[in-house]
Amino acid sequence: MTTSTTPDTPATPTVSAAPGTPDASVVTTAPTVGSLRVYGATLHYEVRGRGPLLLLIPGGTGGAASFDGVADALAAEYTVASYDPRGLARSPLDDPAAEQRVAEHAEDAGRLLDLLSPDEPARVFGSSSGAIAAVHLLTTRPDRVARAVLHEPPLVEVLPDAPAHRALIARVQRTFHAEGLMPAMAEFAAGLRGDGGTPEPPPRLALPPQAAARAERTMAGLPYFVSRIVPAFMSYAPDLRRLRALPHRLVLAAGHDSRGELPHRAVAFLADRLGQDFEYFPGGHTGLTTHPAEFAARMSEILHGEAAP
């Protein structure tokens, strides 16, 4: 395995007020960008800040860019690393048709930990499908994870009505192959909202207006996400025995505004099964994008182990 790190052209730091973040004076600089060869793929990753390592694992198709709104605030106290998961954005697969597995995605995250924090366990934050990868990372390599914060992993296999959600996943796949991407996305979004899976017009993606390149990457990754990430990740069953053995390293969380939606239900039910406290973040399933300053502040609190407000 080989690694390479290519720093961006150094940028002049700027300081801007960001009320609600861990530090109201947020220094914004260009991250150091690198690539990591892993089995079957090359990962694009970005690093900024100083201090203990905090690895951010994205969900959906946003990749490392989905953390742009929080990374600089967190970099005041952590070395913040984010990346594009294999097959998405700037992390190409060697075989574009390769099937995806949660275990392989978790191993990718573990390789990044080994590269960026070889001597100390790291803090890990995962969102949505990225939180599912973080669950597997925690249960298979607990020695590398000091604290894992899991925001709305759609672990539907823990729910008592799991067969209904398996049917949703199968329905989304049939719709994708028979009717195309947008009808499948509408079916999937309706199922996540918990309204019985009734298709509606495709949801509008909540992206910053200035992020044209990110929007293009997000849309380009949707067929891969719907056809390979969704069925592989939403059929994943976590190892509850191992999770129960790691209560002080595991934080389960959801959005204030997503009650009743499938990912919120799944993580709340898992917390109950494990006897874990349950934390809240601002916004809903996409609070990372819609409430970035508040989200970063809440993440800092939770990483420090502070009680929920």
Rank of each mutant, 00 (worst) to 15 (best):
G63C: 01
V47D: 00
L159E: 06
P19S: 07
V172E: 11
D272E: 15
R37Y: 05
L222I: 09
F188L: 15
A268C: 04
A162L: 05
L138E: 02
I169L: 15
R193H: 09
Q210A: 08
P199E: 03
S235D: 03
R174E: 12
V149N: 08
R174V: 10
F269M: 01
V26W: 06
P163F: 11
M299V: 02
A184C: 13
R249D: 12
Q100D: 05
E279K: 13
V149W: 10
V27F: 11
A106Q: 04
A65E: 06
R214Q: 14
F269K: 03
P183V: 10
A146W: 01
E46N: 07
G305Y: 15
D108S: 05
L115I: 05
M1N: 11
H256F: 12
G260A: 11
L55A: 03
V124A: 11
A11G: 10
A41H: 02
R171K: 08
A89P: 00
H248I: 06
E279M: 13
A212F: 05
L250H: 09
L53K: 07
L55R: 07
G260P: 10
G34M: 01
S227F: 02
A271V: 04
A190W: 02
E301C: 10
A213W: 07
L274T: 07
R265F: 11
V172A: 12
V15E: 14
R242Q: 06
A211V: 06
A131T: 03
A296C: 10
L54N: 02
H256K: 13
P309H: 08
R48G: 00
H304L: 04
A11H: 08
T175G: 03
S66E: 02
G62N: 01
F67P: 05
P238V: 00
A308G: 15
L181T: 06
P309T: 09
Q100I: 12
A71F: 03
L112W: 02
G260E: 12
V80T: 08
H248M: 08
S16I: 15
A17H: 14
Q276Y: 07
A266I: 00
F125H: 13
P208N: 07
R111Q: 14
L53V: 14
T5F: 03
L246M: 09
A89H: 03
A271F: 04
S235Y: 07
A186N: 04
G40P: 13
S258A: 15
H248Q: 12
V15F: 14
H291G: 04
L262F: 09
Y39K: 14
T14F: 11
R101D: 09
A131D: 06
R123K: 05
A89G: 03
S127F: 12
H248S: 14
V102I: 10
L168M: 08
G63E: 01
R217Y: 08
